[in-house]
Design a binder for these strands. Structure first.
Lengths: 322, 322
DNA sequence: AATGTTTACGTTAACGGTAAGGTTAAAGGT
DNA sequence: ACCTTTAACCTTACCGTTAACGTAAACATT
């Protein structure tokens, strides 16, 4: 690769490297004329400062890391996309890593981030374990937990009220006359799952539903859609509505319906979670998470080192499937 | 952040930094016993080598960059996801940047990559301009153009035959009796667009269609779906099939159909391009691009510095919408 | 005229790692 | 017993940048 260094600029301008460095970092103690001249040379030669050398000196790298569990899940790819927008405006590079069940654990993903010396780190924690987050905190990493709330920890966090999210769905489905809902949830050890479940049950009862009629299933989330399961299950019709842990699973349900000739919204009610872009395309009723605002808040918190916990509220988006 | 350095390991082991370095890089001239001991200490202390210092010395950073135009487009997020899988196995970190029309151009994205001293760079070029790619080549960057074929350039490339892709759709739609197809394409200056168009026209005629009946529209790609356009257009029914530049646009068409009560596959034929995950969910007939194989090939080419151009063949996936 | 003050630089050392070359003690050869 | 070889280290210098400190000249102050 091309190697234009500070030295080259300094030689060209007839000054020391330090003076160039000062110009580049907008520091004082430089004659305005010299400054202007150096800037012109930098421009002309197309000099790009070496981020590695900077990082080595302990200066900011302007890199922000995100750890997500599956970039192919639209919720996360939208998250990354939004973050890139926001970060871009602030001159930050985004480094993405997904934990991707196969080999990599969240821990190795985090190591990767440290390796690349990110200034900030946003983690959408997959699990319920917090050891690695505790470690991060001890080591002084400027990170934030996104989407998951750890009651007893003092990490900075930005998340949505999952209990409330479940509840508005429970209220709604009971309200439109569902008697036997099926909940297709994800990992039962995640607080997100538990909150959405218990919220749903509470809401369903509150609006006159019979909680004991609720059927609960825990399936793998992500790209493993619940399609296969549903195909067999849908035939028996032991339920009249489905509430899915996320839109991806709901899309699996929609797909199964289509194959079986069951019309969502009419024959069966289906509700997802996340309000992903495709939910709109598909007419999927879902729970919207204000991801853009949450990310703006997250970036604000993290770059200004505000150690706060901020909860957002979800919102029911009613479309055609329920 | 925690700062365990080579020096710390060296002190602990009672050897010089260089010896530790040799162990870490699997180089010779170290006593097996010493090597074992050092490895144990490294493990125990959880030492992570500083990638910046390495990069500064001109060593490999093990970072691979990808430049895509919109991570929210499932084609690209799947691309990134696959790449992370492949790269992960090889111990590479992936740095993502999207060019994201708003501010950032492809050029700044590329600069970002240089800034972060990636060893390799995969670019899915948005435009038809090649100056920045030429520059990259001159500067000796190890990059590869993904998905776009530049006939007269000698960049390494991996792409699919877009002409063929358009042609199989043209053949197919004429074959199932479409008389008046509508093509909804993207940027008319991209070779991808042109090839898919001309391929379609050729295929349509080849299978007995009347090419002059084809209606052609160029709309913005990406998240700006063609929904609004279609809603008004679909009412008049001046066409009996739609071939979209990509699945995202086809999903917009599907959505418009759903809102207007038009049944895809029955009332109108719809074909997309890319065979994104959601195409399967939606039953969308589309053209499949062997993205996984292409990426494996890309990574192989780029890390082994093979300067080749490799073309892949697309495949028609027939589902319910056509 | 001698002494502070300010401005605009330059010098040095360090960040953490590695390539290149030097050093030492033991082993081997004659 | 002396020389050569080799294994297994160590030392030095440098990658590009910047913090901290140093300094010379210009100007102001008494």
């Amino acid at each position: 690769m091309n190697k234009i260094t500070l030295k080259d600029i300094a030689n060209e301008a007839g000054v020391s490297q330090m003076t160039v460095s000062r110009v580049l970092n907008d520091k004082p103690d430089v004659n305005p004329a010299t400054r202007k001249n150096i800037k012109a040379i930098v421009e002309r030669l197309g000099y790009i400062p070496n981020a590695n050398a900077r990082a080595l000196k302990g200066a900011k790298t302007n890199r922000i890391g995100v750890v997500v569990s599956d970039i192919r899940n639209p919720f996360y790819s939208e998250l990354v996309g939004e973050l890139e927008d926001i970060a871009g405006y602030k001159g930050l590079s985004v480094i993405v890593s997904d934990t991707n069940k196969k080999l990599e654990t969240e821990l190795t993903a985090i190591r990767l981030m440290e390796l690349n010396s990110v200034d900030y780190l946003i983690i959408a924690p997959e699990g319920y374990k917090t050891e690695h987050l505790d470690q991060l905190q001890k080591r002084g990493m400027n990170f934030l937990s996104f989407g998951v709330h750890f009651e007893d920890k003092d990490y900075p966090e930005v998340w949505t009220d999952d209990y409330e999210g479940g509840k508005i769905v429970g209220n709604y489905l009971a309200g439109i006359g569902s008697k036997k809902p099926l909940l297709i949830m994800g990992n039962p050890r995640k607080t997100n799952t538990i909150d959405r479940e218990t919220g749903f049950i509470a809401g369903f009862e509150e609006s006159g539903g019979n909680a004991s009629a609720i059927k609960l299933e825990h399936l793998k989330v992500n790209t493993d859609t619940c399609e296969a399961y549903l195909e067999s299950e849908l035939k028996e019709r032991t339920f009249d509505s489905i509430f899915c842990y996320n839109d991806l699973m709901a899309m699996g349900a929609l797909s199964a319906c289509r194959k079986l000739g069951i019309i969502p919204g009419k024959d069966i009610k289906i509700v997802g979670y996340d309000d992903v872009f495709y939910a709109n395309i598909l007419g999927l009723t879902t729970v919207k998470i204000p991801i853009k605002k949450m990310l703006e808040t997250s970036v604000d918190l993290i770059i200004n080192d505000k150690r706060e916990k901020i909860e957002f509220k979800p919102e029911l988006i009613i479309r055609e499937t329920a």
